[in-house]
Amino acid sequence: MAETIIFDTDPGIDDAMALLLAHAHPAIHLKAITTVYGNGTIEDCTRNACYLNQKFGMGAEVVRGAAGPLRRPPNGPTVVVHGEHAMGDVVAPADTPIEIDERPAYQYLCDAVNAQPGEITLVAVGPLTNLALALQHDPSIADKVKQVVVMGGAFGTRGHHGNVAPFAEANIHDDPDAADQVFTARWSVTIVGLDATHEAFFSGAYLDALKADGGEAGDFIHAVSRYYLAFYSDKLGLDGCHVHDPSAVAYVIDPTLFTTRPGPVRVVCDGPAIGMTLQKADGKRYADDEFSDFRDQDVCINVDEARLLTLYRDAILSLA
């Protein structure tokens, strides 16, 4: 039976790649797309979500979410990575119909989860502000969500510490307060961070093959990735890109692709290490311990790259 997901996103180049996987794979029922600031402004991210939903006939409800973090000024769009309007050289037309649910995203999340208790998985691949606001609005949803899967964080395995700061990944760094609330809530969270996503790579040749064989979706993925790959080439010297947001969707489809480690997770919310994610995985209780009163969450620390790339390619080719 397909997993019903609400996809919380700031589209975003790799967000668009992930949305196409969620749309294409038979194991996923894409119920809704809730938008959040991050890779672009909330206006651009919402327009991009509407554009993708309409262009590919995804049939999801689109809901506008938070325009900024819970308590701090926004860091601003990541133009250097995702471009002026967040999808690189692909720009959603200014007259794209903005067909959205009238509720704010946090209200929509609460209403949807209460209407289908135990059935909805939240997949969040941007700042976690919408999820934190939903928890504040109705804490009981933590007992009704099936699971939460987050693309974010970095826990230091094999040297994967951060990508926008020495010890912080971008989504967590954008709203560390929200992330700490989400990770310490009663619900089950799986965190697919840089420890796993930096171990998988969409090479230039892989994306060229998707363009050749993948029809309209393959063409789009190739086009939207050009700006992204230019960043990876110029800044990192790589021909291709890491598999960030699609990995969160892939986890929902097939958790056996990933190696996970249990333990409570906290986020540094102030100071020079702001946005740093920390997991206490030793099972011990300490005299000074602000971890152990919170439930274990699962952190992905590795991935089967070959199987992940095959899963993604097969799903995109199925659309053709």
Rank of each mutant, 00 (worst) to 15 (best):
A105P: 00
F183T: 12
T96Q: 10
F183C: 11
N114E: 15
C110W: 11
F183Q: 12
A124T: 13
P104S: 06
N130C: 07
P93S: 12
D180Y: 00
V164R: 08
V125N: 10
A94H: 14
A179H: 02
P97L: 10
P166L: 03
Q116S: 15
A179M: 04
A124S: 14
H137P: 00
Q107G: 01
I120P: 02
D143W: 01
V149D: 02
P117W: 08
G153V: 06
I120V: 09
I98T: 10
L122N: 00
L122I: 02
V90H: 06
L109H: 06
D180C: 07
D175A: 00
Q107K: 13
I141V: 03
P176V: 00
I100Y: 07
M87K: 09
R103S: 06
N114Q: 14
V90S: 02
D89V: 13
I120K: 01
H137I: 01
P104V: 08
Y108V: 01
P176H: 04
K144F: 02
K146I: 07
P176D: 03
I120Y: 05
Y106I: 08
A105F: 00
A105Y: 00
F183N: 14
F155P: 08
I172K: 06
V113T: 09
A92Q: 07
A154V: 07
G156D: 08
V149G: 03
N114H: 15
I98W: 12
L133H: 10
I98Q: 09
A178T: 09
F183W: 11
V150L: 11
L135I: 11
Q147Y: 02
T129G: 03
P176Q: 05
D177E: 15
N171M: 10
D111P: 07
L109S: 06
V125I: 15
V148C: 08
C110E: 13
C110L: 13
A112E: 14
C110R: 14
N171C: 13
L122A: 00
V113S: 06
A94E: 15
P93D: 09
A142I: 00
L135S: 05
T121R: 04
A154Y: 04
A168R: 05
I98S: 10
H161G: 01
L128M: 12
A178K: 10
T184L: 02
H160C: 14
G118Y: 11
L109P: 04
Y106G: 05
F155T: 12
P117T: 05
L109W: 01
V123K: 02
Q181W: 09
M87W: 08
T157H: 14
F183K: 12
G88P: 10
A142Y: 00
G159P: 06
D101E: 08
P166N: 04
N130R: 02
G152S: 06
N171F: 09
I172L: 10
A165N: 07
D95H: 13
Q116F: 12
